[in-house]
Write a protein that binds this DNA or RNA. Structure first.
Lengths: 122, 122
DNA sequence: GTCCTTGCAAATAGTTTGCAAGCCG
DNA sequence: CGGCTTGCAAACTATTTGCAAGGAC
């Protein structure tokens, strides 16, 4: 994978922004630095980075995919009210039972849906 | 929610088929019984049933959503090799810590990606 | 009869892709 | 230089939606 200013900018943005972003949010943000970058390039790079494990993705009930530059295993909580996404640590032995059956877990995605502490109070 | 033959057929199919299906698989299956049912109707009903909690959905790395008529909480394992989706029970206290922080978990989605026991052997 | 639901077809929208030009190594 | 990468725009594809006709209650 070659290092290009486009790819670097995308990765830097996702890592600096401690929040989950859709492709078009990444596009808008990176366009500040590289005004003529194209959406296609953003998608291609997000795909590459995902494949190399440099970023991860989260599916919400929205139709679009969210990307996250913080890759260490963690669970996501999606608030149905304020739409924020929160991070939580993952319980380590969650898939022990599955391992024991001979399955190889390469990746796990844990997403909780509900109301965050703040919205739940109201 | 009115009971229509379309909705009944869709739900029956998803419940009888102990497997996860995309909208178009549901469409194809239901079309055997109701030849002139439309894809739009399938999508509308899947949406309704999802909202009422009569079915659940799974996102895989594919771009389409899979539906499941077996609604009791369970985790999914998606095999990257044979593309099959396996069900596993969920550890019950997985989100205790999140509850304790005042968050309300209404729904949880746990998906493991990797190689199933069979493909892992090869 | 009311109004939710359907079939149809057109519209959306996120994402992917083909291609010629550009740039990294 | 070679070939991965880009910008652009057109193509795709899953899903949604407007509308008039149909059917459940």
């Amino acid at each position: 994978m070659r290092e290009t200013k486009q790819r670097t900018a995308i990765l830097e943005f996702l890592r600096s922004k401690r929040q989950h972003c859709s492709a078009s949010e990444v596009y808008d943000a990176v366009r500040v630095k590289i005004p003529n970058i194209s959406l296609g390039t953003v998608y291609r790079n997000l795909g590459n980075l995902l494949e190399k494990g440099e970023i991860i993705s989260v599916e919400t009930s929205d139709k679009c995919v969210y990307y996250d530059g913080f890759t260490s295993s963690h669970a996501h909580f999606v608030c149905s009210e304020c739409k924020n996404i929160f991070d939580f640590p993952l319980t380590l032995d969650a898939h022990k039972e599955i391992d024991d059956m001979g399955f190889l877990v390469e990746n796990e995605r844990v997403v909780y849906y509900g109301k965050c502490a703040n919205c739940n109070k109201k």
